[in-house]
């Protein structure tokens, strides 16, 4: 079989990104036109961001949380539920969870921005665009899977970069990786507090890698008890409610940490 082996110089690599000098800083002067426009876009987006971390926001400032219900439209995501039973597409689960968490957060005084409110396709770039325009203090990308157990938290695997440096669109998250890991830590402890099994990891996820905010991908898996028996099924409304409540509690804790002088 003829196999075409084309090794293209792709922007990043993961598990740790393969750093190439042409993608980390914005080579505005020497970059091709498209790249230059991408750089200018991220430049303007970064310029629009407040000087986060330099001064704590005033207590009255709105604390914005972006909820990104992954998949949607043609992209159904994984199939959830017992293979023999009627399978629920991941896109429906993530949307329902996003709606649930949104109302919990809104009730706690958060300003919530969602990347989709219905079953529509949203590109990774569009998701990042919505998140970056929202000027958010936390961006949660919601996934679900039948594999594994409990809650899987993933931060970007990009190498942390200096926040002051300008970054290409595809690696905008690099400047936020440290804070994303802190957010994952807060989520980990809050979910653990709610007696949930949590695993932590890092991965290369294009939608997260372009987000200029503390961002964590959260994958909900069924809860397994001893002997790997399912104690919390994904289609169990009680389990969904527990997950949503625990996530909202974690964000409340994150707000408290961010606002600490």
């Amino acid at each position: 079989m003829p196999v075409r082996l084309e090794i293209r110089p792709l922007p990043t690599a993961s598990i740790q990104p393969l750093r190439r000098s042409h993608d980390a800083p914005c080579p505005i002067l020497f970059a091709p036109f498209a790249k230059r426009m991408g750089c200018l876009l991220s430049l303007s987006l970064l310029a629009a961001l407040p000087a986060f971390g330099q001064a704590p926001p005033a207590p009255a400032a709105r604390f914005v949380v972006v909820l990104d219900a992954a998949h949607g439209g043609d992209d159904t995501g994984g199939r959830l539920g017992n293979p023999t039973a009627a399978a629920q597409p991941e896109k429906a689960f993530t949307l329902a969870l996003s709606v649930r968490v949104r109302s919990l957060l809104a009730a706690r005084g958060f300003s919530v921005v969602t990347t989709r409110e219905s079953d529509v396709s949203v590109t990774d770039d569009r998701r990042a665009e919505i998140a970056n325009r929202a000027n958010a203090q936390a961006c949660l990308s919601l996934h679900a899977s039948q594999s594994g157990s409990g809650i899987h938290l993933y931060a970007s695997s990009l190498t942390p970069a200096e926040p002051a440096r300008l970054l290409a669109w595809k690696t905008a998250q690099a400047a936020y990786v440290t804070r994303s890991l802190a957010l994952a830590g807060v989520l980990n402890s809050a979910l653990g507090h709610a007696a949930m099994t949590v695993t932590l990891g890092s991965t290369a996820l294009p939608s997260i890698d372009s987000m200029a905010c503390p961002a964590v991908a959260i994958e909900i898996a069924p809860e397994l008890g001893p002997n790997r028996a399912i104690t919390g099924a994904l289609d169990d409304p009680a389990y969904q409610a527990r997950v949503a409540t625990a996530l909202a509690a974690a964000i409340v804790q994150w707000r408290a940490e961010v606002r600490q002088p």
């Binding site: 994984g78 899977s145 993933y154 994958e219």
Partner: peptide, 8 residues
Amino acid sequence: PSGLETET
């Protein structure tokens, strides 16, 4: 199987 953890 589809999923962040299993695929990673």
